Simulated assay, not measured.
Amino acid sequence: MNYYQNDTVNRTQQEHSVKINNRKELEITGVKEVDSFDNEEFLLETVMGYLIVRGQNLQMQNLDVGDGLVSIKGKVYELSYVDDHHQEKAKGFFSKLFK
């Protein structure tokens, strides 16, 4: 792999996007890990920090860890990011909820 290809791979892994279609289909790239989920809330670790997705009848449709892609279906009510210095607090809070 030459320098240009290596740089392209690194940039691809760092990209993060959120695409919502009619508040019913959500496609998220740049996902590092799915920490927890149920039919009302997902906690995702992305390359841009933790992302909380809240809604109704949420279902994971696709999970591709290699590409960092997650697809969710259901009615989306809220998307919120947790700042870097609040990540451990959020992770601890949500892990208590989902025990």
Rank of each mutant, 00 (worst) to 15 (best):
Q59C: 07
K75N: 09
L79D: 06
N62F: 01
D64Y: 10
E40G: 02
N62L: 03
Y50Q: 01
N39W: 13
F93V: 08
I20A: 07
S36H: 12
N6K: 15
Y81P: 02
N6Y: 15
F98D: 03
L79E: 06
K73Q: 09
R23M: 04
K32R: 11
E41Y: 10
L44H: 01
Q56D: 13
Y81G: 05
G30S: 07
D7F: 14
S71C: 10
K89E: 07
M48K: 10
D7Q: 13
D64W: 09
E78C: 02
E25M: 04
S36P: 06
V31M: 02
G49I: 04
L79T: 08
T46G: 03
Q13M: 15
L69F: 06
T8N: 11
D67H: 12
V18W: 02
D7P: 03
V82E: 02
N2P: 05
Y3F: 11
T12Y: 14
K24W: 09
K73I: 06
S71G: 06
M60R: 07
Q56R: 05
S95G: 09
S95H: 12
T8S: 11
V70H: 00
Q61G: 11
D38M: 03
Q59K: 07
E78L: 12
L51Y: 10
D35H: 08
R11P: 02
V70E: 01
E15F: 04
S95A: 07
N57K: 12
I20Y: 08
A90N: 03
G74L: 04
K73C: 05
F37E: 00
Y3R: 14
Q59P: 00
E33P: 03
G92I: 01
L63F: 03
R54D: 13
G74C: 04
K24F: 10
I28Q: 01
K24N: 13
H16L: 14
N62A: 06
H85A: 12
Q59E: 07
R54E: 15
N6I: 07
V82D: 05
E41G: 05
V31R: 01
K75P: 00
Y81A: 12
D7N: 07
S80Q: 12
V76S: 04
L44S: 03
H16F: 06
V47L: 03
Q14N: 13
V53A: 03
V70Y: 00
V53G: 00
Q5C: 06
L63C: 10
Q61F: 04
G68D: 00
D35A: 13
Q13H: 14
V53K: 02
M48V: 14
A90P: 02
Q59R: 07
S95W: 02
G74A: 10
Q56N: 11
V31N: 00
I28W: 00
E40K: 08
L97S: 11
F93T: 11
D64T: 03
A90M: 05
F94E: 00
S80G: 14
G55Y: 05
Q5M: 10
M48P: 04
G30V: 09
D84L: 15
Y81R: 09
V82Q: 06
L51F: 06
E41Q: 06
L63D: 02
G92E: 01
